[in-house]
Amino acid sequence: MGLLTYITKKLLIGIPVIFGVTIILFYIMYILPGDPIQLLLSGERVTPERVEELRRAWGLDQPVYVQYFYWLSRIIRGDLGISIVTKQPVSLLILQRLPYTLALMLTSILLSYVIGVLTGIITALKRGSLLDSILSTSSIICYSIPGFWFGLILMLIFAYYLRLFPVSGYEGWHSLILPALSLALPSSAYVMRLTRAEMIEVLGEDYIRTAWAKGLSKRRVLLVHALRNAIIPVVTMFFLDLPWLMGGAVVIETLFALPGMGRLLYVSILKQDYPVVQGIVLIITILTVVCNTLGDVVIAILDPRIRFERGRSV
């Protein structure tokens, strides 16, 4: 039916997008100041003939597009180059760090959406009550507090005074709780406000009145008829948020000294370790494209109007 065609189309569109991204990424690296050979030699004195030889050996004498295809074919084979600083393969560096970052991102996004959606529904239903005022006000506060400051406070209270969690470094899954919380809280405040607004809007729709008129139970009206509609923009937000969390992870991982990809990115930028930066940026962009595509697909499943483009009509 329409849904499968729609999903295939969305997946196929994702491919050229990723291609485009690699072209831009490669070109940025290409025009960056600094000669890779000089960087590689890192100040060693060698003859110009030796430099030429190296340039040929690395394919740097070829035109840009040829270099791009060399680079692309290496990327596809999983070879992201070698770190200038540690001389280790970039892919290995990233693979070592990726699990921590993924664990941190997933925990925090699940935390923020579970908290945000639940409080959003509650405040929408209890609109105007004391609970609503308290939660809405604290959500503004949570949303305004920067994650790193929040992280410091959490660290101070739960790690330093109460000694419930380690202050920094990775000592097992419980090391992830404070960082995940400091990433999740500001975002959960936003999710709550979105859910609340959507829910209030949907509850005023004609089809909700129809649902009441049919004599459905309160639970069915709210969960099946209202939430099913109100959740659609929240789910869209979820998939758009996922890659954005990476930015937060850079700060939070640095703060909590977690050995994740965010901290690797931070350190590599400071040390001008271009291959590593390039590798991580590539991973983030692919993640973004994948998340967006996934989001499109999930939304199409949730909202039948979206996949109705040129399908059957009356």
Binding site: E205, Y207, T210, H225, R228, N229, I232, D303, P304, R305
Partner: peptide, 8 residues
């Protein structure tokens, strides 16, 4: 037009 639930 608006009295039926669009997602069911």
């Amino acid at each position: 037009m608006s009295s039926l639930n669009p997602v069911l």
